[in-house]
Computed example of a mutant assay.
Amino acid sequence: MPRYCLALDLKDDPTLIAEYEKYHEKIRPEIAESITGAGITQMEIYRIGNRLFMIMETTDAFSFEEKAAADAANPKVQEWENLMWRYQQALPMAKEGEKWMLMKNIFQLS
């Protein structure tokens, strides 16, 4: 089962960070459906300061490109993404329009 790790920053404002966390206590059902429907079987988000770290486990058939296309065509997901962008900011090295950035695995204890 593939595992992906991604990073993103929040705006460094305690009030906004608290609101963002509140939204994630119970996400909207249609957002959860878009996640699981894309082949994501497990997802966790961790925070330190204003840095977010996401761990995703997926089916072998999962595709970032297919997930992005499905999200772009889903008005509820777009509404959620626009709302979340109020709290988020791109990492300093992100390209224009890039949000969650895939992290490179540099060590694994086997």
Score class of each variant (00 low, 15 high):
Arg3Gln: 09
Arg3Gly: 02
Tyr4Asp: 00
Tyr4Leu: 05
Cys5Pro: 00
Cys5His: 10
Cys5Lys: 01
Leu6Val: 07
Leu6Arg: 10
Ala7Cys: 05
Ala7Thr: 05
Leu8Gly: 03
Leu10Thr: 12
Leu10Lys: 14
Asp12Asn: 15
Asp13Val: 10
Asp13Lys: 07
Asp13Pro: 05
Pro14Leu: 08
Pro14Thr: 05
Pro14Phe: 02
Thr15Asp: 10
Thr15Ile: 08
Thr15Ala: 12
Thr15Asn: 04
Leu16Met: 07
Ile17His: 02
Glu19Ile: 11
Tyr20Ser: 11
Tyr20Glu: 11
Glu21Asp: 15
Glu21Tyr: 05
Tyr23Ile: 09
Tyr23Thr: 14
Lys26His: 11
Ile27Trp: 04
Pro29Glu: 05
Pro29Leu: 02
Pro29Val: 02
Pro29Met: 01
Pro29Ile: 03
Glu30Ala: 12
Glu30Asn: 13
Glu30Val: 12
Ile31Asn: 00
Ile31His: 02
Ile31Met: 03
Ile31Gly: 00
Ala32Pro: 07
Ala32Ser: 15
Glu33Arg: 14
Ser34Arg: 11
Thr36His: 14
Gly37Cys: 04
Gly39Pro: 02
Ile40Pro: 01
Thr41Arg: 09
Gln42Asp: 12
Ile45Pro: 08
Tyr46Pro: 01
Ile48Met: 08
Ile48Gln: 11
Ile48Cys: 08
Gly49Gln: 08
Gly49Trp: 04
Gly49Thr: 01
Asn50Phe: 03
Arg51Cys: 09
Phe53Val: 13
Ile55Cys: 10
Ile55Gln: 12
Thr58Ala: 05
Thr58Trp: 00
Thr58Ser: 09
Thr58Cys: 03
Thr58Asn: 04
Thr58Phe: 03
Thr59Lys: 01
Asp60Tyr: 00
Asp60Phe: 00
Ala61Gly: 06
Ser63Phe: 05
Phe64Asn: 06
Phe64Gly: 08
Phe64Trp: 07
Phe64Met: 07
Glu65Cys: 02
Glu66Lys: 15
Glu66Met: 12
Glu66Thr: 11
Glu66Phe: 06
Lys67Asp: 10
Ala68Pro: 05
Ala68Arg: 15
Ala68Leu: 10
Ala69Ile: 09
Ala69Asp: 15
Ala70Ile: 06
Asp71Val: 10
Asp71Cys: 13
Ala72Ser: 14
Ala73Gln: 11
Ala73Ile: 03
Ala73Arg: 12
Ala73Phe: 07
Pro75Trp: 02
Pro75Gly: 04
Lys76Ala: 14
Lys76Asp: 12
Lys76Cys: 03
Val77Asp: 03
Val77Ala: 10
Gln78Met: 10
Glu79Asn: 08
Glu81Arg: 13
Glu81Trp: 07
Glu81Val: 13
Leu83His: 14
Leu83Gly: 10
Arg86Tyr: 12
Arg86Ala: 14
Gln89Ala: 09
Gln89Ser: 08
Gln89Lys: 13
Leu91Asn: 12
Ala94Asp: 14
Glu96Phe: 12
Gly97Ile: 06
Glu98Cys: 10
Lys99Ala: 15
Lys99Asp: 11
Trp100Asp: 04
Trp100Val: 07
Leu102Tyr: 11
Met103Leu: 15
Lys104Asn: 09
Lys104Trp: 03
Asn105Phe: 02
Phe107Thr: 05
Gln108Tyr: 06
Gln108Thr: 11
